[in-house]
């Protein structure tokens, strides 16, 4: 199947999936719905295919100093952080490197990093996201937590982003 067709197909399966099922990672038969027949829960883990993009090298990171990046394209700003101590979902030798979108999932305004408490904050309506807790919304108006990057670090210390775990604000497909 040519790549573009595969993307469309995967995308279609993706949106039919119930979130609870996905979390359990259950696999089940996938069928494309047709007509008025009832749609059953689709459990496939199909995702949009992301580019693998080099964002930085470990050497570029200083503890608790945000490095501005963009992923999966230049219109999607984000941040790379070396937190200095291990966090769940952290990567790198110290398991402390994380990356997040910096577009507020509420109404799309830019988030600013507060180094004092390692949070991303929205000037517009005061939402706050915890960089040490997987982007959990500490308090705010978004109905989702902050999209976080799936990162890979190669043997040279180059950091690649290869996925995002929530829909980015302002696009109905994370990869445009």
């Amino acid at each position: 199947m040519p790549r573009c067709e595969r993307l469309i197909d995967m995308g279609r399966r993706q949106f039919l999936r119930g979130s609870a099922i996905a979390a359990a990672g259950a696999a089940a038969a996938v069928s494309v719905p047709s007509g008025a027949q009832e749609v059953r829960t689709q459990a496939a883990m199909a995702r949009v295919e992301y580019p693998s993009i080099r964002l930085a090298n470990i050497a570029d990171l200083t503890i608790n100093r945000p490095l501005e990046v963009a992923f999966p394209d230049d219109d999607a700003p984000g941040v790379l952080l070396k937190l200095g101590s291990r966090v769940e979902g952290g990567t790198g030798p110290d398991e402390d490197i994380v990356g997040f979108s910096t577009t507020c999932p509420h109404k799309g305004f830019p988030l600013l990093y507060n180094a004092d408490d390692r949070t991303l904050n929205c000037r517009n309506h005061y939402s706050r996201f915890d960089c040490e807790a997987g982007g959990q919304q500490i308090w705010g108006h978004a109905a989702q937590n902050l999209p976080q990057y799936a990162l890979r670090i190669d043997e040279n210390g180059d950091i690649y982003a290869e996925g995002v775990d929530e829909l980015l604000y302002g696009r109905l497909s994370n990869v445009l």
């Binding site: 995308g11 279609r12 993706q14 949106f15 999936r17 979130s19 996905a22 883990m45 995702r47 949009v48 769940e88 979902g89 915890d130 807790a133 997987g134 982007g135 959990q136 919304q137 989702q144 937590n145 902050l146 999209p147 976080q148 996925g163 995002v164 775990d165 929530e166 829909l167 109905l172 497909s173 994370n174 990869v175």
Partner: peptide
Amino acid sequence: MAYKRQIDRLPII
């Protein structure tokens, strides 16, 4: 880890 829906695309209206 914080709850994430793992949804990266929605059908278009």
